[in-house]
């Protein structure tokens, strides 16, 4: 114990210093640095988040459907959840073809977010803007394609020249709608996930920094009730917010998928 305290005492001085933002979100490359195939911790997390659900579903598929194994029951309950809670309320009639897409999105994002609380990773995959932005652009391309495929040119016309508003307001409303549907939507969709995960990550770092700073003070043989309370408070805060981040990660995956479902649903069915 004294050795640990000594390390803290000589490491951090007295000041509480938040590390520069580059140090907490940028990771050195494992190989291929500064090339297009640069592979770092974020890429490793993405790979795991793809491989784990794939293997899970393939193994579950091998089990028979008449006497399902425990794994198959679990996987089927995930698909059931996506169908009942995300696809059906979000899309409405004709949701069936989109269940695989929503299941993949949900599992990829949820597992990527859970790396926030897994030791040695300690970083949510979606706290880098590139990940959510690509996912949001995929959803953007899909809902525009679905809109034109199902409603033809009427899809575009209903957005830029909405029939349900008074004619004098149509240019204004149409302009705002065009801007919000085709331009703002992918960015707000991505930023919602990105900022939530980055905020959670920085919250946990803040508590860790506080713990290190107070421990450094205690190790440098400073004493006081305030310092001890600060240490205990940051410790409790760190543990509490770690549990909170598990919930946030899953809820954000849910929110991202249900918004994707709502966007697809709005282009699938014409406005009444």
């Amino acid at each position: 114990m004294t050795n640990v305290l000594a390390i803290f005492a000589e490491g951090e001085g007295s000041a509480v210093e938040f590390p520069p933002i580059e140090n907490v979100v940028e990771w050195p490359a494992f190989f291929g640095g500064d090339t297009f195939y640069e592979f770092n911790k974020i890429a490793l997390m993405g790979l795991i988040a793809v491989v784990v659900p794939t293997v899970l579903f393939l193994v579950a598929r091998a089990s028979s459907s008449t006497a399902p194994s425990k794994l198959r029951v679990f996987v089927e309950s995930i698909v059931k959840f996506i169908e009942e809670q995300i696809a059906k309320p979000g899309i409405g009639h004709g949701f069936e073809p989109y269940v695989p897409l929503l299941t993949s999105l949900f599992l990829f994002i949820a597992i990527g977010n859970l790396f926030e609380v897994i030791p040695f990773f300690q970083m949510p995959m979606n706290a880098r803007m590139a990940n959510p932005l690509v996912l949001a652009l995929v959803v953007w391309a899909i809902f525009i394609y679905v809109g034109f495929k199902n409603q033809g040119f009427r899809y575009f016309k209903d957005i830029v020249w909405p029939g349900h508003v008074p004619p004098a307001l149509r240019p204004l409303v149409g302009f705002i709608e065009f801007f919000s549907v085709f331009i703002v939507r992918p960015f707000s969709h991505a930023i919602r996930l990105f900022a939530n995960m980055l905020a959670g990550h920085m919250l946990l770092i803040t508590f860790s920094v506080l713990i290190i700073a107070t421990l450094g003070q205690i190790a440098a043989s400073a004493s006081g009730v305030v310092l001890a309370l600060g240490f205990v408070g940051s410790l409790v805060g760190l543990i509490g917010f770690t549990a909170f981040e598990v919930g946030v990660g899953i809820i954000q995956a849910f929110v991202f998928s249900i918004l994707a479902a709502v966007y697809i649903g709005s282009s699938l069915h014409p406005a009444h």
Binding site: S188, I191, R192, A195, N196, L198, A199, I251, F254, V255, I258, L259, V262
Partner: peptide
């Protein structure tokens, strides 16, 4: 959750 997601976006843009 849908309503929260839409409302929360403004705070997140602030963040």
């Amino acid at each position: 959750f849908l309503g929260i997601a839409f409302t929360e976006a403004l705070a997140l843009i602030g963040f």
